[in-house]
Design a protein around this nucleic acid. Sequence first.
DNA 1: CCCAAGTTCTG
DNA 2: AGAACTTGG
Length: 717
Amino acid sequence: MTGGSSPAVAVHGQQSSSSRSSSNISNISSSTSSSRSIVWFRRDLRVEDNPALAAGVRSGDVVAVFIWAPEEEGPFYPGRVSRWWLSQSLHHLDSSLRSLGTPLITKRSFDTASTLIDIVHSTGASNLFFNHLYDPLSLVRDHRLKESLSAQGVTVRSFNADLLYEPWEVNDENQCPFTTFAPFWNKCLSMPYDPAAPLLPPKRISSGDVSKCPSDTLVFEDELEKASNALLARAWSPGWRNADKALMAFVNGPLIEYSVNRKKADSATTSLLSPHLHFGEVSVRKVFHLVRMKQLVWSNEGNKAGEESVNLFLKSIGLREYSRYLSFNHPCSHERPLLTHLRFFPWVVDENYFKSWRQGRTGYPLVDAGMRELWATGWLHDRIRVVVSSFFVKVLQLPWRWGMKYFWDTLLDADLESDALGWQYISGTLPDGRDFDRIDNPQFEGYKFDPNGEYVRRWLPELARLPTEWIHHPWNAPESVLQAAGIELGSNYPLPIVEISAAKTRLQEALAEMWQLEAASRAVMENGTEEGLGDSSDVPPIDFPQETDMEIDRERELPRINNTAVRRHADQMVPSMTTISSLIRVEEEVSVGAGNVAEDSRPEVPSNINFEADTHREVAQALPQFNPDILRNALHSTAESASTWTERDGGLVPVWSPPPTSSRSEHYPDDDDPGIGNSGYLQRHSQSHQMLNWRQLSPSMRRSWEMESTVQPNAIG
DNA sequence: CCCAAGTTCTG
DNA sequence: AGAACTTGG
């Protein structure tokens, strides 16, 4: 790869006109008129407004490819429902592509890069086109891929298909990335140029020669999962045409009422577009332009509510944009609090709490109803997501990454960037997140979002006969009322596992402890003692910032790559975090209790609901293995009951192991067993996906990390 | 016109 | 929880 064409070009202070051309295809017309291109589909499963596909069609013959290499996702192996969606969507895409002239070639792989190279060779292609992704893994993988394929003489181009604006296009007046949402979104809405107009689907695709490049049959579900998945098809229709229908239905229907309806937990007044958007079945730019046109119309009609509805809906699109923006600028945001002092928060490490939450047996009806709905359907209204996750973090004080992982495994629209943003927001680990010491009371939220208790009754049949007056706080109901409703608290419906008032006290204590640890760590930092402090030395010391300072990611300290070069086409920009942060993960939390999950993860799904009880297998596969012994060893409080374990998360050693073949694994994840399912990936990427404890690092490594993570750029904020 | 109480919103 | 905003006396 020659110096001049580095694909990773930092563009800062560099402008709109060139950025703009990057997101449409006008700059590609100079490509030779009949070369053969691989169009690599990922989470852009559509033929409409797909810049990579359009580029391929323009430059000649097209080989359309999808590669299934889930092991590369490490702990974020897609959950069952998410895999179901993907399989449906791929079928849909394949038939669309076929009708245009070429099939979708599907490949099973354990190494995307080498599979792509094989495909290039077997098809004689000279170009590779794909659309950008912004999760940490893809940023690094795609960057490397670009380098290695370019070195082999393949022309690699990548495009923006997922965002209104690329992350590097949206900066504040000092050309620095925003650190809060509101100004970010205002800027997006007032950019000097509009998001690119959507491209039409190609009329016809000239197929490359795929005779030497047969498809693999991809398996996304096993027999047991099939039964559960069959029910999903009743409620959802994956695929880009269906996505388009859903969009139209929403825009011409519920959108206008969005601002008034959004409060109700129950109503189907949301767009239901998120899974479609996650897989790129519909283009956000199309959504944006369409919705904006509606707004113009309503605005002219003086329909204030309609106008406001569009603003609110667009804001949720904006949050999705922001999640990518955040992930791009802070590639660790899916696993580390962005507000550094929160790393010292003493999370409650209690698997029983976690289990009660998963099963919808916390004793708070709104929370429990939400968790049962999530399990049964893979779906939750955004409001309820906030309720259950806020309960998780603030009342149970479990580490948010556990909750995020569970969402990842169970949500139909599981999306790493969006979910990381959501959990960080709820956890108060963002500069503009909720106040950390704010505890929402599920009882009051219940009457707010579900005033008549219908939602609760639907998902908690055991409470169905309880009058509305008590539906959100059965623990206060008179015995006679409970009896009449057939409820025996503590037996067929639990008492609250944690009282709100107790949670408040505990939260205050935990916060005090957090500040103490933080201060101690700072002191250690200052006098250079390394080992004095036990656990708190596990967390990178920080130069204590103002409340709103974000974590300083490594890329800010490292020299920018090639600041001066002009970015060509739409080269994928890669934050320069690849070296250190992917080598080392300072882990705050242990992995979720998969052994536990595997054994007994199934909440009792209400029997009047038409969803079959699920099997635990997919959860077991999706979750990283966590051996409780490791946890116990790491904690000193063995004598106490599980529910009183609290320990700074940094003191625990998180280790991910390959998915088990059996549902139960006694196997210590950090020994050298290469394991089964994940072995390919873990072996090849041992540095980037081995989870290391801070203590395990060599002192010199540690020092360099500490130095880097404490440098304060003044540019932020 | 003011004040208090109530309501809504917060990414 | 707290600010900002609305409502009604």
